[in-house]
Amino acid sequence: MYRFRSLLLAISTFPSICAGATDTDQLRQNIGVSEVKYINVVREIAKPTALAPIRVKNGVKFMSLATNSTGEVVVQNAVIGFDHGGSFQPAPGTAVVVHVHNSEMSPKPDPADYAALREYELPCFIISSDGENIWEIAIIDGMNKFRAIQSSGIGEWVDFK
């Protein structure tokens, strides 16, 4: 239970992180997440969420984010699973899905991430197991694409190969 509390502690900071968050590094394209506040929150929580210990060996972390009535980004639900989302269902009202890869997985997006993206039909962010790298994944014109989300800016969409 202690390790799960660490994850809960990491995600309990979302509202305070989001309050007043702004993103001036780039205007968002009309694709994917419509509000940059989700990107800002994902940037802020990537490392603590990725590094929060869990008892499931090589478990993967999923969470769904939404905006509450005061405009703060909140966690709708969070799940620790054994695979790429087989047991994860985003809560009603979810705006964004966040998925943390475990250390046994490639840190970058993989084909299973795109399968989940197609299933959820929601913008998705992938965080590497060390929390150092973040990617937004999307299906644009029928093609699997991803882009890096860095503290210095948002990368260009790149074809997934």
Rank of each mutant, 00 (worst) to 15 (best):
I134F: 08
S6I: 01
P53I: 10
D141M: 09
E35Q: 15
G20Y: 04
G142L: 08
G85K: 08
K161S: 12
S64M: 00
A91I: 06
W157M: 10
S129D: 14
A10D: 00
P48E: 06
M143G: 04
K47A: 09
Y114V: 04
S34H: 11
V41F: 02
V74M: 08
K57P: 14
N133E: 12
S34R: 13
N68K: 01
H99T: 04
V41I: 10
P109G: 07
S16Y: 11
V79K: 08
N102W: 01
C124R: 09
L51G: 01
K61R: 14
V42Q: 03
K145N: 06
F62P: 04
N40S: 14
R43T: 15
S87A: 13
Y120C: 01
K108S: 14
G85C: 07
I127V: 15
Y120F: 15
V73C: 12
N77R: 03
A66N: 10
F62A: 06
V98Q: 01
L122Y: 00
E72V: 02
G71T: 03
Q26K: 14
I11C: 04
E156V: 12
R43I: 13
Q150T: 15
Y38L: 07
A46M: 08
S87V: 09
D23I: 11
L9K: 11
S103L: 05
P107M: 09
N102I: 06
A52P: 05
I39Y: 03
I139H: 00
V60A: 08
P15L: 06
V100W: 14
A66T: 13
R147A: 03
S103T: 00
S152C: 04
V79W: 07
R118A: 15
R5N: 07
D25C: 11
I80P: 01
A138G: 08
T24N: 10
K57M: 11
R147D: 03
D159W: 01
S87M: 10
P109A: 13
V74W: 04
Q89P: 01
I45L: 14
D25N: 13
D110S: 13
Q29H: 13
P111F: 10
I45E: 02
S16Q: 14
K37T: 12
G131A: 05
V75T: 14
I134S: 01
H101V: 10
V98L: 13
I126W: 02
A46E: 02
Q29V: 09
W157I: 10
N144V: 00
P109Y: 09
P92E: 12
A10H: 09
R55A: 14
L117V: 00
G32D: 11
P107T: 05
F14S: 11
I149Q: 07
R147S: 02
I154K: 02
V100D: 08
K37W: 00
A21W: 03
D110Y: 04
F62W: 15
H84K: 05
S6H: 15
M105E: 15
R3S: 14
L65N: 08
S34Y: 02
D110H: 09
S103H: 10
T49K: 01
L51F: 02
F82S: 11
G81Y: 03
A21K: 09
A91L: 06
P53H: 07
S6Y: 07
G71M: 06
A91K: 13
K47W: 00
I126K: 06
